[in-house]
Amino acid sequence: MRRKLIRFHLGIRGIAVILLMLSSTFANAKQDQIAIFTATKVFTSLSSGKAKMLFKGRIKRLNNKKIVLLDWPNGSKMKKQFYHELLGQSEARINAYRAKLVFSGKGVPPKIVQQNNYLAVEKYIKGRPNSIGYALKSMISKEFTILYVVPAGENL
């Protein structure tokens, strides 16, 4: 009987450990959401609507300051995922949309980092206080201000 109880406890503990591991994996997955961030403390958090308006080029200023948007290289997984999750649109549709702004004289496209990695994004943002970029939240250093975390699968 006592042996049975020990086995039962071990079983419970085993399940608990597995559950803990799963929850930790889930937590990591949540941390891997994409976040919009900047180097300045002047800008505060963005609402979902404002983040979308910003990356759609509908607004060009925050707190009356001109901002510079930063994109990952075309064709990169990060760029595709970002626009898909934030706006529910493919890179081609976003490009077509941006063409409307550029070729009507109503806006400039985001700057594009040359290298397909976070360090290139970080370097650019660090050097330009009014620039706003995006990256995996887990990668963004604490010195930056996170403006908005894109809920995973919001537009999927």
């Binding site: 075309n74 064709g75 490009n95 063409a99 550029v102 594009i112």
Partner: peptide, 16 residues
């Protein structure tokens, strides 16, 4: 994956 938009000739000069 040629890039839109535009070619940044300098930080302030853009060709499209």
């Amino acid at each position: 994956s040629s890039s839109f938009a535009s070619i940044e000739v300098t930080d302030n000069l853009l060709f499209s």
